[in-house]
Structure formats: structure tokens, C-alpha cells
Simulated scan of single mutants.
Amino acid sequence: MKSFTYNTCAYIHCCCPDVTFWDYSSLDSFLCEEQLLPQSEAIAIKRVIAFRLEQEMAQQQLTKADLARRMGTSRSALDRLLDPNNTSVTLLTLEKAAKALGRHIRIELAALRESAGRCDE
């Protein structure tokens, strides 16, 4: 199958010349402008965490019910933890899940890349 790409902004501008577009040099600058960067980063991190937990569950052939039982929590609480869009998770819950899987949590406070993660205020 052949793939075709085109500049969406140029296409829309051709059809609708009154539409204005902003030139964002990066996705980060767009998210900063829209005041969405912190939320977007939190969701991205949570998606990685949920993905890694599910990978470990699959490797150990554990069901959600099995993991919830090991954690001493409900299946619905585990579903919230595994929901990639639910960023309301506590470190205690993460630690319980990791321990139930024979793992531990490692959190690092790292320097920001110079061009990313900062919004001019």
C-alpha cells in the first residue's frame, strides 16, 4: 500500500483562506501555549507505568484478580491503576503493585532537557 502525506495546514488554508494557523516549532511549545504540557506529561508517564505493569502481569501469567489479591486491594482499584488515562495514583499503590509483582519502584528526579518541559510564564 502506498502512503501519501500532505501538509494539513496548507491544505486547509487553500480551501479556507480565512483560517489562521500558528507556527509551533515543537509539540512542547504547542502544549505550553495551550497550558496542557504538565497534564500531557503526566498522562504519558502513567501510560508507560500501566503498560509495564500489564507486561509484567502477562509475563507472570497473572490475572487482574490475582494481582489485586496479592496487593490486598479490589479489582476496581487495580483497574484504576492500569487505566492509562487516570493519573490519580499514589506512590503507595504503585509500590504495592510493584511488590506484588516481585519488583520495586524507582523514581528519579532528573534535569529537564534544555528545550523541553518548560513553559514561559
Rank of each mutant, 00 (worst) to 15 (best):
M1V: 07
M1F: 09
M1I: 08
M1Q: 09
K2H: 10
F4H: 08
N7W: 05
N7R: 13
T8M: 15
T8L: 15
T8G: 07
T8A: 15
A10Y: 11
A10F: 11
A10D: 15
Y11Q: 11
Y11M: 09
I12D: 12
H13T: 06
C16L: 12
P17S: 11
W22A: 13
Y24A: 11
S26W: 06
L27Y: 11
D28H: 14
D28Y: 10
S29V: 02
S29L: 08
F30W: 13
F30G: 05
C32W: 09
C32K: 04
E33A: 12
E33S: 14
Q35F: 01
Q35T: 04
Q35E: 14
L36S: 09
L37S: 08
P38F: 01
P38G: 05
I43K: 14
A44S: 12
A44V: 07
I45C: 05
K46G: 04
K46L: 00
R47H: 10
V48A: 10
V48M: 08
V48K: 10
V48L: 10
I49H: 00
A50H: 05
F51E: 10
F51H: 14
F51K: 15
R52H: 13
R52N: 13
L53R: 06
L53N: 03
E54G: 11
Q55P: 10
E56Q: 15
A58C: 07
Q60R: 14
Q60V: 01
A65W: 03
A68T: 07
A68G: 02
A68H: 02
S74W: 04
R75D: 09
R75A: 03
S76M: 10
S76F: 13
S76N: 12
S76C: 08
A77Y: 02
L78H: 07
L78M: 07
L78V: 04
L78K: 09
R80A: 06
R80W: 03
L81D: 03
L82K: 13
L82A: 07
D83M: 07
N85G: 09
N86F: 08
T87F: 00
T87I: 14
V89H: 01
V89F: 01
T90H: 03
L91Q: 01
L91R: 02
L91H: 02
L91T: 11
L91E: 01
L91A: 01
L92W: 02
L92R: 12
L92V: 13
L94V: 05
L94I: 05
E95A: 09
E95Q: 12
A97F: 00
A97G: 04
A97I: 00
A98S: 03
A100Q: 07
L101S: 02
R103N: 08
H104T: 14
I105R: 01
R106E: 12
E108W: 06
L109Q: 05
A110N: 07
A111P: 03
A111F: 07
L112W: 10
R113V: 04
E114L: 08
E114P: 08
S115T: 06
G117Q: 04
G117K: 04
G117M: 05
R118Q: 09
C119N: 04
C119Q: 06
D120R: 14
